[in-house]
Amino acid sequence: MTTEALTPENVERLLSGSPRRRSKERAIRWFFWTASATSILITLAIVLSLVGEAWTFISQADPSSLWEIGWFPRRGLFDVKTIVAGTLLVAGIAMLVAGPLGLGTAMYLSEYARPSIRRVVKPTLELLAGIPSVVLGYFALTFITPDLLKRIFGNQVAGFNLLAAGIGVGILTIPLVASITEDALRAVPRSLREASYGLGASRMSTSIRVVFPAAVSGVVASLIIAVSRAIGETMVVAIAAGATGGSLFSLNVLQPGQTMTAAMTALAIGSDRVRGADNAFQSLFFVGLLLFLVTLFLNVISERFVRRVRQKY
């Protein structure tokens, strides 16, 4: 093996190893680059597939059918406000459940709990987070409605209703709210708490007046993410809220109703039959596009809030 002298002209070539080795390295890098670029392709595929069919739907649909009577896609009635109202009701009820329970749990875990309690509670919350949503749908239908709501509201409650679905979705989002909020509360530096105790503040004042305000961006982020999750949640509503055929516009949460997501599953199950007929199939993508845009908007906002927490400390 002859050794070349290290001159300024060839030093870079000599130090960077054999050309074969370098081209192999470049090929490997290219392979991994492709894999990460795939994620952009997926987003593009989602947007294209949604926009294409949604556009067909909007251009063919009778404008008056989009804002009247109710959501009965198989009869050509696509009242968007019916399913949007259902979605907002379910998300609202879910937040009434998950907000207080999630925030309270997070604050106890972060400010009060001894390590031994944390060791029990955290895995339990993770377990709850891992429960599939169909299971909560079943729970809402067979426990929350008959054993809880019927006892409170009597016969005003229908077997399928939006309230049970909302509570079910709320239970599903408790762990989400609790874990993100707890992270935000724990990210508050100890020195702030110590300063507060040093001034003679009690644990309660410290938690409410010092720690909570310092972590408020994270708390808001957790609530926004939970709303986004609640809006996108499908199976609980599909199982427990009924109205699979369609629904009139109504704000009564004790009666059956439909959300955007549940309306989509109800359509899709029968989509063999409705394919192409009366725009029903295309309406699926129109609703999907709405859902995609709303959740994207919420996720982007929540990320802003999360970043604010990080910048501060």
Binding site: S36, A37, S39, I40, I42, T43, A45, I46, S49, L50, G52, E53, I225, S228, I231, G232, E233, T234, T261, M264, T265, A268, L284, F285, G288, L291, F292, T295, L296, L298, N299, V300, E303
Partner: peptide
């Protein structure tokens, strides 16, 4: 890519169903 992946993780599962249906 990073922002895109975070957003993809927040897309409701039913929207992936629509992607599967279309594609």
């Amino acid at each position: 890519v990073n922002a895109n992946i975070r957003n993809l993780a927040g897309v409701p599962s039913i929207v992936y169903g629509l992607l599967g249906l279309a594609l």
